[in-house]
């Protein structure tokens, strides 16, 4: 028998954890998604594509399949809100990351510490903080009212904007850090060289700084987008359950809706969307590596 190397034994715990806690559950989800759901939760081991067709179609009284936009709307909303969140994060993060990269070393460490600090607090608490800020008579509303900037309004909470505020707040460190890393690596002499060659600041930003920070920007974009797609907490607490995202829909199927197969098929769909973005990113990095 071939003697197994140290590498194998050393990595065995990792292999076990990964296969038992990640690969196996995913395989189960994949399996369940092709089964028939049981009316009382769980599933019956009968092959069926019903849970996939349910995403797009619904059966009318005569058992004809008609297009149903109910779930597609949730998917579209998820994609849109996640994309918008990533864009807002990018617009906010770039100046922040640039500012941090231009500070002294001590200051940099301190500011990066501040950026990562929220990660040490439970996500539920962080989202609740947003609820408190946005709620009726919360800090923001009473503040705005005090300065006479708003009159009587419905509520700042429980809408798409509130959900986005929460998502931006939760995931923005994931954008700041990779962008910071790529700006930090940027050779400041290139910026000098550009201005030496008659380029004004705006143009230096556009034609030198941004293209060279692109790897960091793309990485940050995907790091924010991917968890946003599956997010559950923000729609629950800040959306007030009125507006759903894909994460909540899936959660419901395994919970109150008792439709495991449908939940599993939605999970597979979400996984496919995420994998698509990750593959794009992996393809990009390998191409970049080839270039250099």
């Amino acid at each position: 028998m071939k003697k197994l190397s140290w590498n194998f034994w050393g990595l065995l715990p990792a292999y076990l954890v990964m296969s038992l806690l990640m690969v196996l559950p995913l395989l189960i989800i994949f399996y369940v998604s092709f089964m028939t759901s049981d009316a009382y939760g769980g599933y019956k081991a009968i092959f069926s594509l019903q849970s996939y067709s349910q995403i797009f179609y619904t059966a009318d009284w005569d058992d004809n399949l008609v297009l149903n936009f109910q779930y597609l709307k949730i998917i579209a909303r998820t994609l849109f809100l996640s994309g918008a969140t990533a864009v807002i994060c990018l617009l906010v993060s770039f100046p922040v990351a640039y500012y941090i990269s231009r500070q002294s070393n001590n200051m940099k460490t301190f500011l990066l510490y501040l950026v990562t600090l929220p990660f040490w607090v439970s996500m539920v608490v962080r989202v609740y903080a947003c609820v408190l800020i946005l709620s009726n008579d919360g800090v923001l509303e009473s503040g705005l009212r005090f300065f006479g900037l708003i009159g009587d309004i419905d509520s700042l909470l429980y809408n798409n904007a509130a959900m986005m505020v929460g998502m931006v707040y939760t995931y923005i460190p994931l954008m700041i850090l990779p962008i910071y890393a790529s700006i930090e690596k940027l050779d400041t002499r290139l910026i000098e060289a550009a201005s030496d060659l008659y380029s004004c600041r705006m143009n230096t930003l556009r034609s030198i700084i941004l293209p060279l920070c692109k790897p960091g920007i793309v990485a940050g974009f995907i790091l924010v987008l991917v968890p946003c797609l599956g997010t559950v907490l923000e729609p629950m607490l800040l959306g007030g359950g009125k507006t759903m995202m894909l994460g909540n829909l899936i959660q419901n199927q395994f919970g109150v809706a008792r439709n495991w197969s449908f939940g599993a098929s939605l999970t597979v769909l979400l996984l496919c969307i995420v994998l698509l973005f990750l593959m794009f990113q992996a393809h990009r990095t390998s191409k970049l590596r080839e270039l250099s």
């Binding site: 201005s195 030496d196 380029s199």
Partner: peptide
């Protein structure tokens, strides 16, 4: 710098 008619070899 970007308005000076001098160029630099770094």
């Amino acid at each position: 710098a970007h308005q000076r008619r001098v160029n630099t070899v770094f």
